[in-house]
Amino acid sequence: MAGVFYGVGVGPGDPELLTVKAIRAIQQADVVIAPKTEKKDESTALTIAQPFLKAGVPIVRLVFPMVFDGETLSEAWENNKNTILELLAAGKKVVFLTLGDPMFYSTYIYIFHLLENCGYPVETIPGVPAFCAMASKLGYPLAEGNDTLSVVPATLTPEQLDRVLARSDNVVLMKVYKNYQKLIETLKRHGLAENAVMVSRCGLEDEQVVRDVTEIGDQTINYLSTILTRRNKA
């Protein structure tokens, strides 16, 4: 029997936001892969999916280093690919858990590209992106009528970010944990700080909502933080 690889989006944090299709894939998995970084033992995606795991299912924790050295990345990712291929060759249904949506700024995308021509079926199951969950929870429409919405990483160059902010009605800013104070100054300059709201670890027990993004000070911003902003309140 041929193995099948599933990339499953588990959403931002609330297990009740998983789709029926995602739950079914998780429950039928022969092996579950939980990605994690070198610095942390836990996997947030695994925690979210925990209520739906069948008893005794093997869990493989693969380390994805958060580094930008090409050789280190290449070796780590190649090793992870080989681990997955061995499971598929054994005829396993392999579920790879990923936060939010698998095709949206996700670790899964790299694995997807590595396995595209591996000879085994690959199925991607979408999940709820954090910014969509945030908007619904806060009653914060992302776009109405002819509004333009830009979804961008805050790690863009200052010039790139200026161009995006200048042309957008509404903005979703991902990866805001880096250079936060400079980012806030940029939002102020474009008239987008007043209506901004930041949510960290959306849907998880320690979720934090910041309605005045200018008052954060020097505190460390959690990696799982996103800012929603717009020019005018609805």
Rank of each mutant, 00 (worst) to 15 (best):
E116H: 04
L87N: 02
L138H: 07
P129S: 06
S106V: 05
A89Y: 03
L62T: 10
S74A: 06
Y108H: 13
E38R: 12
P51C: 13
A49H: 02
I59C: 12
V94K: 03
P126R: 04
A133T: 15
K137G: 05
A89H: 14
G119E: 00
F52Q: 15
K137Y: 05
F96V: 06
M66A: 07
I109V: 15
T107D: 02
N79M: 03
G91V: 12
K81R: 12
G70C: 14
F96P: 02
D69C: 14
A49C: 03
L114C: 11
D41G: 05
S106A: 09
I111M: 10
L85C: 07
P65G: 06
E86C: 13
L97N: 09
P121T: 13
Y120C: 08
V95I: 07
T107Y: 00
A90T: 09
F131T: 10
S106G: 09
P102T: 09
I59M: 12
V63G: 01
F52C: 15
Y108P: 14
M103C: 04
P129G: 10
E123K: 15
G56E: 02
N79F: 02
T83A: 08
A133S: 15
P65E: 02
I125C: 10
I125K: 02
F96M: 03
V63F: 00
L97R: 07
F68V: 10
N79S: 03
L53I: 03
N80V: 08
D69V: 14
P129V: 13
N82C: 04
